[in-house]
């Protein structure tokens, strides 16, 4: 089950991006999701993210994320109206409670909760997209240039994780062969059996780690300055995607300063569209952010285009 990363290489366009371009695309999406308060902008962002997820063939994976987020979204929608008393349009007067005072549910608070749950879904979908397009090894090798030692710890642990799960299975099988029945008995009787398993796992894996250390020592770890090499190439597609992300960020900052992408919920709901600028800024942001999606579409359809970028 854990033999593979969440990421799976399918040779798709978005997976072929340089890690810097892919990371900055996900990063810009993240910042925008946290910045926007206007529900229209949040919905637009969500639309782009879902299109990008669809471009990497990830809608099935996204459904799992949707299920995780639904519970949290519900929580956000319930908590907000119950504790917020700032809204003017009260639609329900509740009983008095010791900590919260009188319960009131206002229309504004429900709208706020709904907008925040869209934000939550957008953020979780961004991570779904990130998991689908960036190979962990690429990020680690990028990190190794700045923080070699931490990157080494992380990549060692990443490599050991599936191996250790396999090792745990092995120890379990050996114990079963020796006559230990892990399924029999009450919880109290089963715990010592698991304690023995964990003890063996701890001992043998720590012993292994000393062997790894000796292998590192033999390969001159820590004896001088480290060298590193780059395997990823920067192609026109990376410049285009990075340019799109930066343009979206710049326009979003402008929109935020002008108040296009902000929306005040309290005490009364604001107008969703405050003027033509709101729509223009939104369209520019969505177009700039969909550059990778459009490129991905062209990459699949047109061999000439594929060769050029």
């Amino acid at each position: 089950m854990f033999d593979q990363f969440f990421y799976q290489d399918k040779g798709l366009f978005l997976q072929s991006l340089h890690p810097v371009a892919a990371l900055s695309y996900a990063g810009v999406l993240m910042v925008l999701a946290l910045l926007f308060t206007n529900p229209l902008y949040l919905l637009g962002l969500l639309l782009v993210i879902i299109l990008a997820v669809a471009a990497v063939d990830g809608l099935a994976a996204w459904e799992t994320y949707l299920k995780i987020s639904l519970g949290m979204m519900l929580l956000v929608i319930i908590i907000n109206p119950l504790v917020v008393h700032a809204g003017e349009t009260i639609i329900w007067w509740g009983p008095r409670l010791p900590v919260f005072g009188r319960l009131t549910v206002s229309l504004e608070a429900i709208c706020y909760g709904a907008a925040m749950s869209v934000r939550l879904l957008a953020i979780i979908s961004i991570f779904c997209l990130y998991n689908l397009i960036v190979h962990p090894d690429k990020v680690l090798s990028l990190l190794a240039r700045f923080a070699s030692r931490s990157a080494l710890v992380l990549s060692l642990a990443t490599r050991m994780f599936p191996a250790m799960i396999r090792q745990m299975e092995n120890i379990r099988e050996v114990q079963v062969v020796r006559g230990v029945d892990f399924h029999a008995g009450t919880l109290k009787e089963r715990l010592p059996k698991y304690a023995a398993l964990m003890n063996i796992l701890l001992l043998s894996s720590l012993e292994d780690s000393l062997e790894i250390a000796e292998a590192m020592q033999a390969r001159a770890f820590g004896s001088g300055r480290r060298s590193c090499y780059r395997r990823d190439t920067w192609r026109p597609r990376d410049s285009l995607c990075l340019g799109g992300s930066l343009l979206a960020l710049a326009v979003a900052v402008y929109g935020q300063a002008k108040g296009c992408s902000t929306f005040s919920f309290y005490p009364e709901l604001d107008y969703l569209i405050k003027g033509p600028m709101t729509v223009i800024v939104l369209i520019i942001i969505i177009l700039a952010l969909s550059v990778p999606v459009v490129l991905s579409w062209g990459w699949q359809r047109c061999p000439y285009f594929k060769a050029k970028i």
Binding site: L156, L210, I212, E214
Partner: peptide, 19 residues
């Protein structure tokens, strides 16, 4: 200052906790 043994043991402890 971290020795190679420390790096390996820290990585292993992290892995055990992750498992």
């Amino acid at each position: 200052r971290v020795s190679s043994r420390e790096v390996a043991v820290i990585a292993m402890l992290g892995t055990i906790a992750a498992v």
